[in-house]
Design a protein around this nucleic acid. Sequence first.
DNA 1: TTTT
DNA 2: TTTT
Lengths: 169, 169, 169, 169
Amino acid sequence: MAGVNKVILIGNLGADPEVRYMPSGDAVANIRIATSETWKDRNTGEKQERTEWHNVVFFGKIAEIVKQYLRKGSKIYVEGKLRTRKWQTQDGQDRYSTEVVVDINGTMQMLDSRQGGGMGSSVPFDDAPAPQSRGGGQRPAPSGGVNEAPPAQSGGFGGSADFDDDIPF
Amino acid sequence: MAGVNKVILIGNLGADPEVRYMPSGDAVANIRIATSETWKDRNTGEKQERTEWHNVVFFGKIAEIVKQYLRKGSKIYVEGKLRTRKWQTQDGQDRYSTEVVVDINGTMQMLDSRQGGGMGSSVPFDDAPAPQSRGGGQRPAPSGGVNEAPPAQSGGFGGSADFDDDIPF
Amino acid sequence: MAGVNKVILIGNLGADPEVRYMPSGDAVANIRIATSETWKDRNTGEKQERTEWHNVVFFGKIAEIVKQYLRKGSKIYVEGKLRTRKWQTQDGQDRYSTEVVVDINGTMQMLDSRQGGGMGSSVPFDDAPAPQSRGGGQRPAPSGGVNEAPPAQSGGFGGSADFDDDIPF
Amino acid sequence: MAGVNKVILIGNLGADPEVRYMPSGDAVANIRIATSETWKDRNTGEKQERTEWHNVVFFGKIAEIVKQYLRKGSKIYVEGKLRTRKWQTQDGQDRYSTEVVVDINGTMQMLDSRQGGGMGSSVPFDDAPAPQSRGGGQRPAPSGGVNEAPPAQSGGFGGSADFDDDIPF
DNA sequence: TTTT
DNA sequence: TTTT
């Protein structure tokens, strides 16, 4: 019992989200996002760039938001945790795949809502307000109590079953 | 509407926590923690050290854990957000005070449980298991559903009223 | 010797940066950025919003980038550390002010370069490429060695003198 | 050009570090660290635990520190970035492996120095001071200038060649 | 006021 | 394979 496992990413989606539904009815959304870093070669002085691709999976209510608002090219902020899943190929070989999991403890924020449809973008979701989402589900209506300061997300997360037999890349 | 406001600290408590209770019965715990950084002077090569003191305030269930387990000298990991409060001196002058707020969206972890009572420490709580705590309150028992993976904390946070008329330092 | 002191913010500038120069010639840039969080009141269900303002100060080369590229309204990602300065009012009273310091160990990234001048913005810097900046200064040209992977920023940071007699707000 | 790619971990080493040297003479250190999270099953109320294992690779001077100070069981704080490497099996199949890279932009801190040799530990490095390390190399001696505040790490990082033909697990 |  |  101990540990911190936190990932923070800002990047762009390489494709539209892929969304599936659990037997429980909960959505699971998968995206790929690219982060790139640039630097100058110390010898030649030339500008270098390296792009890293990340598999990010969203559970619960936040998966619905991903489905509704994100598209290929969307720039987002993501806070989640690392998880490495073991899975088998069709001929029974072991494989490992590492993902960034955004569940009720994680967060997602859209960062490009302002570039908006007004600029002639063909992206239909751009007129929607940019959501700022915790992974959490609905907040149960509590009884009484002051409320001058932000509370937080809460319960209702419906579980996250294994997908170990999915091919990750 | 948008934004990330996150603080991550690892440091030691300068004194025992100060705990108060809200009219609602919720605890509020205040601590001071020190972070220090060291570097070598670029001219003399001498080792330098600078210590920074942070005011951290905990709300809800996590405040109870702070009260129970933390003491002067405890080393902790904290994740919270920045908040600057305006308050008045007795003669009506405005003052501002910035704190790190750890509420249901934040986290705290003890990092020194292992140094334990076995070493001759007089600290009575050292035998207790080191808690790993989200700010959250109780989790409501949900109905049905798989549970192979960690869910998350949830609701029940009882509010965090203003303390703007308190003197912060 | 121990400690982590890290702040991560995403928000918008409330005004153009204020830039000064040290006797050494190094720039120091100050900005105010707003982060806001929204939540629903647990009783009334009404949407609530709270905006937090942060003082951020940049040292070294990154301060020049702030001066050149950021304006009122710019949305940025910032990674820095907390620092509380003590200063005196004109009549000799002690005051404390907490800032987020972005020096050579910090980072800044513009997040809204794409909204561009094309939308009729009067902001002249919008055509410039959005910089991704570490706080670092110039990188000394090293001798030999492979370079297939990103190195990192380096030396040359010119110091950050005290500004304790400045009024912070 | 844009992006944030950050990983923050607190966990324990599952084994002693494995250290290799580049043709350039630079060290590369690999460790496995475990982070665990606990939660209560929402139905049964039983305590659950899930442990996640992370591959972490250190480059440059920080790799030397890892070699010198870390051992199986050490608890550390690590700040790095995600990198997925493609490699080939002996029979030419593609594989992918995701690691947390701690280079000059990353950080490592020991968190258990205080448990010390005094408790009967057989670990010989326990008497050494716990290092607080940036990934950086040596700092070039600058000429003149004030130095009242911490500067930062700097240059000299000797490169990080590809290891794509190594087997990662 | 902590810690190393 | 760590830790509590």
